[in-house]
C-alpha cells in the first residue's frame, strides 16, 4: 500500500506541525489521524491531500510518501518500527525519533535531531542534516543505540553526541564536536570535522577529511592502513580527560592542530 500525503498551502506556513502519527503502522487502520499545528489540533486531511493506492495486510508493506513543503513537519517516523517513509523534499526536526525498524529516505535535507535516540532501522538523507544528527534527548546518557544513519551532505554541530551503538556515516563535513561524549558505535566522517570526539569514552570514529582543532587530550597510539581506501590513518586513544578508551582515526595527511 502506498499512502501519499501532499501538504496543503497553509495560512501560516512557518507554524510547526507535530506529526508523530505519520508512521506506516498507523495507516493500516485508515487515514483518520491527528496532528498538531502550533497549539491547535488538526486532522491529517486539514493539512494534507491524502491519496491511498492499493491495500496492505501488514505494516511492513506500507510506504508513506510525503510531498510538498514538509520542512516544518516534526516527528515524522517517531517510534516507527517497520515499513517505509519517503520524503521527497526537506523534513523538520526529530525525524525518526526512537525509531526501531523500517526505512526513512529523505531526498532533501533534514532539520535537527534526525534519528534521535534511534534503536534500529535505516535513515538515508540525500541532502544535509541539521545539528544533533543521531544523538539523544537533553540530559540523556545514551543517544543513538542501533541502526544506521547515512547523510550524503553535511551534518551540523554535535553530530552523534552520546552515540552508544549503530553506525553513523556522514559523506560530507560535520560542524563542531562530532562524536562528543561517544560511548560506543561507529562514526565515519568523509569530510572535515572540528574538535571531534570530545570527552569520548568508547566507540570508534574515522575521519577522512581535515580535523580542525584536535583536542589536546587525545594520545597518538600508532597508525593503521584503511585498505578499502588505501589511506594511512593516525590512530588516537582518548579522551584522556576521562577514562579514554575510545578510538579516533584521522587520515595522516589531514591533521591540523
Amino acid at each position: 500500500m502506498r499512502v501519499i500525503l501532499e501538504s496543503k498551502v497553509r495560512k501560516k506556513p512557518s507554524l510547526p506541525i507535530e506529526a508523530e502519527a505519520i508512521i506506516p503502522r498507523n495507516f493500516l487502520k485508515g487515514t483518520d489521524l491527528v496532528v498538531f499545528e502550533g497549539n491547535k489540533e488538526r486532522t491529517l486531511s486539514e493539512l494534507f491531500w491524502i491519496f491511498v493506492e492499493g491495500t496492505a495486510v501488514s505494516p511492513e508493506n506500507i510506504e508513506v510518501v510525503l510531498k510538498g513543503d514538509t520542512s516544518r513537519i516534526k516527528r515524522v517516523g517517531e517510534y516507527m518500527d517497520t515499513g517505509t517513509i519517503l520524503i521527497e523534499g526537506d523534513i523538520g526536526m526529530h525525524c525518526g525519533n526512537f525509531m526501531s525498524g523500517g526505512t526513512i529516505e529523505i531526498r532533501g535535507s533534514a532539520d535537527a535531531w534526525l534519528g534521535r535516540e534511534m534503536r534500529g532501522g535505516t535513515i538515508v538523507c540525500r541532502g544535509n542534516a541539521g545539528h544533533y544528527c543521531a544523538t539523544g534527548y537533553r540530559g540523556e546518557k545514551k543517544g543513538m543505540q542501533g541502526g544506521t544513519v547515512e547523510v550524503f551532505g553535511n551534518a551540523g554541530d554535535f553530530c552523534a553526541e552520546y552515540l552508544a551503538g549503530g553506525t553513523v556515516h556522514i559523506h560530507g563535513h560535520t560542524g563542531d564536536f562530532p562524536g562528543v561524549e561517544m560511548r560506543g558505535g561507529e562514526l565515519l566522517i568523509e569530510g572535515d570535522a572540528t574538535r571531534p570526539c570530545g570527552n569520548m569514552k568508547n566507540g570508534s570514529c574515522v575521519i577522512l577529511g581535515t580535523v580542525h582543532d584536535l583536542l589536546p587530550t587525545f594520545e597518538k597510539s600508532g597508525t593503521h592502513l584503511l585498505p578499502e581506501r588505501n589511506l594511512e590513518m593516525d590512530v588516537y586513544t582518548g579522551d584522556v580527560a576521562n577514562r579514554g578508551k575510545g578510538t579516533m582515526m584521522v587520515a595522516s595527511r589531514a591533521l591540523r592542530r
Partner: peptide, 13 residues
C-alpha cells in the same frame, strides 16, 4: 580538557 587530564596524571599527553 587539558587541566582535567593534568589533574588525572596524564600531563605527558
Amino acid at each position: 580538557s587539558a587541566l582535567r587530564a593534568i589533574v588525572r596524571g596524564k600531563a605527558h599527553v
